[in-house]
Nucleic acid binder design. Structure first.
Lengths: 143, 143
DNA sequence: CTGAAAATGAGAATTGTTCTCATATTGTAT
DNA sequence: ATACAATATGAGAACAATTCTCATTTTCAG
C-alpha cells in the first residue's frame, strides 16, 4: 500500500480493524467502539475520536476505504476497499446491508458501453446498485 | 399523484420547483433560496425552513422525490422522480453534477442478470453510477 | 541526537437536520 | 355558511455527526 505519512499505532489499529472485517460497513463510531473494546483487552493505547475521524478520512482519500451514506441514520459508512474493488459494481441490499460483488462480464460490457456511447468514465467501485436481496425479499413477502 | 394530505401553498411551491428542474439535484437549502427569490418576485408567502424540510421528506416518502447524498458537502440532494425514472440507471458526473439517463438495452439486461443470477432486485432509479463526464475529463486533461 | 514534519487529544465549534409547541390553515360533515 | 378535527406551519431550540483548534507529543530522516 502507498505510504500514508508517519507510521502510528492509531492508523494501524484502524486499518487492521477494517481489513479483518472486509465485507461489512462501519460508522466512525463503530470503529471507535471496536477499538475501545480491543484496547481494553490488550492494554494498547486508545486513539481519540478526532484521530479516528482523521485517520478514516485519510484512508478514504488514499482509496483504502470506501465511503457510503446511510440515509436512515444520516451516518457515513466505511468499508475496506479490497485490491480489485474498483473493477466491478457492488450490489447492496438496502434492508440488511449485505454487499455482493458483481464480477460478471455484463458489468464490464456496461462500463464499456457507457464509456463509448455516453462519454462517461464510471467508477464502478464507487457506484453502488441499491436494491433488495433475495433473503430480505422472501422475508418481506412472508409477513 | 397520490394524495399528500391537505393541499397547501408550501407543498405546491416545492413540488413545482422540482418539477420545473427535473434533471438537476438540489439541497434543501437550494430549495429554500429558490423559493425566497420567487416569493420576493411574486409576493407569495415564503414557507419556512422547517416546513420545507418537512415537505421534502414527505414527498420523498411518497416517491415523488429521490434522495441522494453529496459526500463532498455532506448534504442531501433531492431530485424530482419523473414518471419512468425507476426504469433505468443514472450516470452522474462527480465533478459537475450532470446526470444522464441511461435508457439503453444493456441496462435492462444488467438488471435481469442481477435478478436471475444474484437474486437481487435492484432499484435502478436509486442506483447512481458515479463517474466523470467527457467534458470534465477533457477539461482536466488540458490543464 | 536534533529538528522539522506529522499526528494526537480534549473539547469547542460548526452545521445540516429534526424536534417542540403554540398557532394557523384545510377540508368535511353538519 | 359553521364548526370541528386533522393537518400544516413558523420560529427557534435541540440534536448529532463531523470538523476544527491548538497546545503537546510522536515519528523519522539526516
Amino acid at each position: 500500500m502507498a505510504k500514508t505519512g508517519y507510521n502510528t499505532g492509531g492508523k494501524n489499529a484502524v486499518l487492521d480493524f477494517f481489513r479483518s472485517h472486509r465485507d461489512r460497513q462501519f460508522t466512525a463510531d463503530d470503529v471507535i467502539n471496536a477499538l475501545e473494546e480491543k484496547c481494553r483487552a490488550t492494554g494498547e493505547k486508545l486513539p481519540g475520536k478526532s484521530s479516528v475521524y482523521r485517520i478514516i478520512s485519510k484512508f478514504e482519500e488514499m482509496g483504502a476505504l470506501r465511503c457510503f451514506f446511510d440515509s436512515e441514520t444520516s451516518k457515513r459508512l466505511y468499508q475496506y476497499a479490497g485490491e480489485h474493488c474498483d473493477d466491478h459494481f457492488h450490489l447492496k441490499c438496502s434492508e440488511c446491508g449485505q454487499v455482493v460483488h458483481l464480477e460478471c462480464k455484463i458489468g464490464d460490457q456496461l462500463l464499456r458501453h457507457i464509456s463509448s456511447d455516453h462519454g462517461f468514465s464510471v467508477s464502478a467501485g464507487k457506484s453502488i446498485l441499491l436494491g433488495e436481496c433475495e433473503k430480505c425479499r422472501k422475508k418481506r413477502e412472508n409477513t
